[in-house]
């Protein structure tokens, strides 16, 4: 299958710079192909930047990176109108947000005000500056990173805003073999623009979206999804169950995942593959549950039967 080949080559291409992270790369790709924004939560130096830049490269999209700091202002991202003396008028200087892939590095370092300006633009696909609405490029992806450990002086994204990200991924340490290979490679972690081959044409990118909407979802699968959702709402381990929007996101990603794997219908394994990244950040454990979000997803997957009785 043509599209499957393109996806595989894209994953392989990213794999040349980010070693041993094929699963995460696939999921990240799935997120972007589902038109969703991605949140990567991990320690520094795990290849978050590399991943986002490489993804933009293989998809052939323009890429910008903004390091979020406490003094970053909304205007620094969105852009400003500046009075131009020569022709005596205001001209708009677009901010870094006017790109196709935006890496918002360490988003929790900036003030809630700046965060919400970005989140609003993410949700609406446009920015409004000084009363004027400007559309963002199409497609528009935000890959935000967050450092979960060093929390001092940060403004963690509120739980309600996490919902704006379709997926949350953790990269984790590479396995020893991949790490060893990394030590030996000539890139040695440095990644240069233009180093990767573009694997998906714009036509393929838009065609992919159409194809995803044609992926068949059977009643049996919807039943399974509903059982999953019902479990999160009923079980006492969950403080907050999966919202209808969350359930929809789950189905959307499962569809994309199925299509990425060259299937015209969704199977339960597709749903399970995207369950952790899609549902993980939307589920909040209740006070008397000891585990974290990941444990919660595992519990969910283990407890709900794939086959209805």
């Amino acid at each position: 299958m043509e599209i499957q080949g393109a996806i595989d080559s894209a994953v392989a291409e990213v794999g040349t710079v980010l070693l041993g992270k094929e699963a995460q790369v696939r999921l990240a790709l799935c997120c972007l192909l589902s038109r969703g924004h991605l949140l990567i939560e991990d320690l520094p130096g795990m290849g978050k930047t590399t991943l986002s830049h490489a993804l933009a490269e293989v998809l052939g999209l323009s890429y910008k990176r903004v390091q979020f700091t406490s003094d970053l202002l909304p205007a620094d991202i969105l852009g400003v109108s500046v009075y131009d003396r020569t022709d005596a008028s205001f001209s708009f200087h677009p901010g870094p947000i006017f790109t196709q892939v935006l890496l918002a590095d360490e988003i929790n370092r900036t003030t809630p005000r700046t965060q919400s300006a970005l989140l609003e633009a993410m949700a609406e696909g446009q920015v409004t500056i000084e009363g004027e609405t400007r559309p963002l490029p199409e497609p528009f992806f935000v890959i935000a990173t967050q450092n979960p450990i060093d929390q001092s002086g940060t403004y963690p994204l509120p739980e309600s805003q996490l919902d704006r990200f379709l997926m949350r991924l953790q990269l984790g340490y590479p396995d020893p073999q991949a790490e060893r290979q990394m030590f030996l490679s000539k890139h040695s972690g440095q990644f240069r623009s233009g180093a990767l081959r573009r694997c998906l044409s714009p036509q393929q990118l838009t065609g992919f979206r159409d194809a995803v909407t044609r992926v068949h979802v059977a009643d049996s699968l919807l039943d399974y999804l509903q059982r999953l959702v019902a479990f999160t709402r009923q079980s006492r381990e969950f403080a907050v169950g999966l919202s209808p929007r969350g359930a929809l996101a789950l189905l959307d990603c499962a569809r994309t995942w199925a299509h990425m794997n060259g299937r015209a219908h969704v199977v339960p394994e597709d749903l399970q593959a995207v369950l952790a990244p899609v549902a993980g950040h939307r589920l909040i454990p209740s006070g008397d549950y000891a585990g974290d979000g990941q444990a919660l997803v595992d519990l969910l997957q283990r407890s709900v039967d794939v086959i209805g009785r």
Binding site: D71, D76, V80, V82, Y83, D84, R85, H93
Partner: peptide, 13 residues
């Protein structure tokens, strides 16, 4: 400096 570059007056944070 960014502001200056955009043609604004010289400002300090």
């Amino acid at each position: 400096w960014k502001g200056l570059a955009r043609g604004l007056a010289l400002q300090t944070k």
